[in-house]
């Protein structure tokens, strides 16, 4: 059964149609790569999934629950959206770590704020905080950053920052983890450490949507690939089909221009 279903998503910005009738679905435990040239709508699609943009048309379902329906205004309320966002995690191209907090605190902050809204928070404060801290530390360990947990973002390399950002997103245990060109802001020699971490997540069957320009990575890691051009899905399928035997001329043109 599909964990994520997006149907007929359309989104326009004043003059440009960024997304034209996008439909796709994703199975639990699978990794989806979205490839395509800059401006093809990949990032806008991710931002729609995370409610940073509101689609003009379409439906988004997670676990069969309708999170967004452009026809149904009740799904657009700010208070409702906040909880729905938690189905998704988003790792940004430019990390967007909180500069005033240490790596560890970056990972813990959102969990702490959510926990403080629990009914039993006051009574179990110490216990809950210990639990959040332990989980955050183990996430950073998984990212290979145990010795960096007390560093501030400006003391970390780009690759380390991005791994903290991945841990921060994982801390909320999202159903679907989204990556928006996670290595595009990194020096070439730092992309490897971030891709390695994402690869490990894929091996652990984390459900992921990955927008990327790293074609070899997309081919190796993804269970499913979507090629987008000019706001539409041109072609989708398993990686071998899309990369080795593209059916569409536009896909062939794109792949011939990018080096794998």
């Amino acid at each position: 059964m599909a964990i994520l279903e997006a149907e007929h998503i359309c989104k326009s910005f004043s003059r440009t149609e960024a997304l034209k009738d996008i439909s796709f679905s994703l199975e639990k435990g699978q990794a989806l790569s979205i490839i395509g040239s800059s401006g093809s709508g990949k990032t806008t699609l991710l931002r729609c999934l995370n409610f940073l943009e509101t689609p003009d048309k379409g439906v988004i379902r997670v676990n069969n629950e309708v999170l967004f329906d452009a026809e149904d205004p009740s799904t657009r309320q700010e208070s409702a959206i906040r909880k729905k966002r938690l189905h998704f995690g988003l790792v940004f191209q430019s990390f967007n770590l909180f500069p005033q907090y240490t790596a560890l605190k970056n990972v813990m902050l959102a969990r702490e704020l959510l926990a403080s809204e629990q009914a039993d928070y006051k009574a179990r404060k110490k216990e809950i905080q210990e639990e959040i801290r332990a989980e955050a530390e183990s996430l950073l360990m998984k990212m290979g950053l145990s010795n960096r947990k007390d560093n501030y973002p400006h003391q970390l390399s780009g690759g380390q920052c991005q791994r903290v950002a991945i841990a921060r997103a994982l801390a909320l245990k999202p159903d679907i983890l989204c990556f928006d060109e996670p290595t595009s802001a990194l020096d070439p020699e730092l992309t490897g450490e971030v891709l390695k971490v994402i690869r490990e997540l894929a091996d652990d069957n984390t459900t992921m949507v990955i927008v990327t320009h790293e074609m070899a990575f997309a081919r190796d890691v993804a269970d499913h690939v979507i090629f987008m051009d000019d706001g539409s899905i041109v072609e989708q399928g398993d990686p071998i089909q899309v990369f080795e035997h593209p059916a569409e001329e536009r896909t062939r043109q794109f792949l011939s221009k990018v080096t794998i």
Partner: peptide, 10 residues
């Protein structure tokens, strides 16, 4: 991006 990071973290 700081606000957006906060938003996606609920």
């Amino acid at each position: 991006g700081q606000e957006e990071a906060g938003l996606v973290l609920g």
